[in-house]
């Protein structure tokens, strides 16, 4: 009986609401984050990830309240990312009830921050988020929603972040994000095979078989998706059943 692979619904949160756009356009409102998180929990989600896409201080305070509300009602791991730049940001999120934080651009500006955060709070709560795009025969890290290239090789960066104390990698393909044609499986596999910490595949899920492919072909330990769940296209149960039918070990929630 092996370790189960995980399904992680992702909530993009702006000013206290779940939103989802396609390639950062056509942002649609997908509901109250507490309600959405509770629904996914009931459907058997293995974890919940929330990305704070708010750029304002007021929005950030709202986010902390949202984390508190979710943590009081949803008893599965909760990861919060977006705008985590300082040790104090991590502490604020953990104190609000998050279990892990996602660090993205702050790691690129200052890799030592990952080391410091891991030593202070433990590797188990440090998720390094990597946004990568294919450039020629390899993948490069981009910031600012895929606009700014960094010249950093994504696979090498993942290895470095693992060495620096990341407990997990959240890997998003900027080419695939919002396109619904499936994960970038070659990228996912290249990173998952290069590091000895768990890798979450993200970006591009349009149907349930994409989730299974992420594990079977991409070697991901967990798969993250947003829009296929938000708008009722598929439930988490259906996703798990499909993955189990493909021979993947999954956790089914206890019967009520």
């Amino acid at each position: 009986m092996p370790l189960a692979k995980r399904i992680i619904p992702c909530l993009d949160v702006d000013q206290g609401r779940v939103v989802k756009g396609v390639n950062f356009l056509n942002i649609r409102d997908a509901g109250d984050p507490v309600e959405v998180a509770r629904r996914y929990n009931e459907q058997g989600a293995d974890e919940i990830t929330m990305l704070d896409i708010t750029a304002t201080h007021e929005g950030r305070d709202t986010m902390i309240e949202t984390v508190k509300a979710i943590a009081g009602q949803v008893f599965i791991p909760l990861t919060v990312g977006g705008g985590i730049r300082k040790v104090d940001d991590i502490r604020a999120m953990l104190n609000a009830g998050a279990d892990k934080v996602g660090i993205n651009s702050a790691a690129i500006h200052n890799p030592e921050f990952v080391k410091e955060a891991s030593q202070r709070f433990g590797a188990q709560c440090i998720v390094v988020a990597i946004d990568a795009k294919q450039v020629g025969d390899h993948w490069e890290i981009f910031t600012h929603g895929g606009r700014n290239p960094t010249g950093i090789n994504a696979v090498e960066w993942a290895k470095k972040m693992a060495d620096y104390g990341a407990g997990e990698i959240l890997l998003t393909s900027m080419d695939q994000d919002g396109v619904k044609s499936g994960f970038d499986l070659a990228l996912t596999r290249a990173v998952a095979d290069a590091v000895d910490i768990p890798v979450i595949a993200s970006g591009g899920v349009g149907n349930l078989d994409h989730l299974a492919q992420g594990v079977l072909e991409g070697h991901a330990d967990a798969v993250l998706a947003a829009s296929i769940f938000h708008f009722g296209e598929y439930s988490i149960q259906e996703a798990k059943q499909h993955m189990m039918d493909r021979g993947i070990e999954m956790r089914l929630p206890a019967k009520r």
């Binding site: 092996p2 189960a4 995980r6 910490i197």
Partner: peptide, 15 residues
């Protein structure tokens, strides 16, 4: 692991 892949450490997830 059972898929023939190296097992990750930390042991993270539902077992």
């Amino acid at each position: 692991d059972s898929h023939g892949l190296p097992m990750k450490v930390p042991h993270m997830g539902w077992n």
